[in-house]
Computed example of a mutant assay.
Amino acid sequence: MEIRNNDPGAVQYGNFMNYYQFNSATERVKLLPDKDVWLSNGDSLDESSYLVLDVGCNCGDFTQLLHKYLEECLKRPVRILGVDIDARLIQRATDVNELHENINYSCVDVLDETAFGQVTQYLEQYNRQQFDAVCCYSITMWIHLNHHDEGLKLFLRKMSCLAELLVIEPQPWKCYQSAERRLKRTGEVFPLFLELKWRSDVEKQIEKYCEETLNRRKIFESTPTKWQRRICFYR
């Protein structure tokens, strides 16, 4: 998980050490919808814990704000499991976590079956088979660059199986090009970059896959972030 040539922007897996210095967690929360999007029909009277999986949680800044937002919005207990591929980021998140009973962090590569067991074990604690919401904010590109089109499809299938509500903030193609340029400056490249078939229309391809293959329906799309990314909610 090392940084190349001491360049914090040259990372292979999106594990930026200073992510929230240039991508405000507070601004992202402002784009989130009201409770009608987060809840399915009949959930409004449910007082059980609302379970969330935050995939690619980085150092946990947004995870903490998301917990506060959802508890205020839903008026019920919220429990979040934040996972990230980088153990250093998970340690930072754990060190500043003041909500140990409500938020847990774990170092997990969600495409690694052994590590993924930690996610299913978390669900078992609550006698649940799915999370109420699985959040994938700005991580699809990193899955895609490192695992090809088929790896991204596998990721989407796995997350969909775990989720009542699937939340995805996909990066547009220009972000892929920027990531490739940053890595090239260090003398390295993403080996699969030129082989990707989902390219300039990657956002549309993800939406099409969610709707046509995973049989989900997009129920909300946020206004664009300053990076021109839209947060999409699929049920």
Results as ranks from 00 to 15, higher is better:
V108H: 00
N146H: 07
F155S: 06
D109K: 07
I90N: 03
V55F: 01
Q12G: 10
Q118E: 15
V134D: 04
R4A: 14
K30P: 01
C57T: 08
Y137M: 15
E195L: 12
E180V: 06
A25V: 06
S48T: 15
K218W: 02
K204R: 12
Q130D: 02
V119R: 03
I139Q: 03
L196G: 03
L166D: 06
L81H: 07
L89P: 01
V119S: 06
W173I: 02
T213Y: 08
W142Q: 00
D132L: 01
A10C: 10
Q12C: 09
V96N: 11
N102R: 14
I219G: 00
L81T: 01
T213I: 13
I85C: 05
V55E: 00
E124Q: 15
K204P: 04
W142M: 05
N102E: 15
L156M: 12
F16L: 15
T225P: 01
Q205E: 14
V167M: 07
N127M: 08
N15Y: 01
L154Y: 03
G60D: 03
L66S: 00
L81M: 10
R199A: 05
T94V: 05
N215T: 05
L162F: 08
G9D: 12
Q125A: 03
C175G: 04
T213W: 04
D61A: 13
Q125W: 05
G9A: 11
E2Q: 13
H67G: 07
T225W: 00
L123D: 01
T63E: 03
A179H: 02
R185V: 09
V134Y: 00
V167A: 00
E211D: 00
R4Y: 14
K30T: 08
Y122E: 10
M159G: 04
T225Y: 05
Y69S: 07
D61S: 11
T114M: 10
C73K: 14
Q12S: 11
L183I: 14
V83P: 02
L196M: 08
S24I: 06
F190S: 04
F193K: 02
V11G: 05
S178N: 12
Q205N: 10
A93Q: 03
Q91N: 13
T225A: 01
R230E: 10
E195M: 06
L145E: 00
I168A: 05
L99T: 07
P33A: 00
D84L: 05
L45T: 15
E98P: 04
R157H: 10
Y69N: 11
I139V: 12
L194K: 13
E113R: 12
E71K: 12
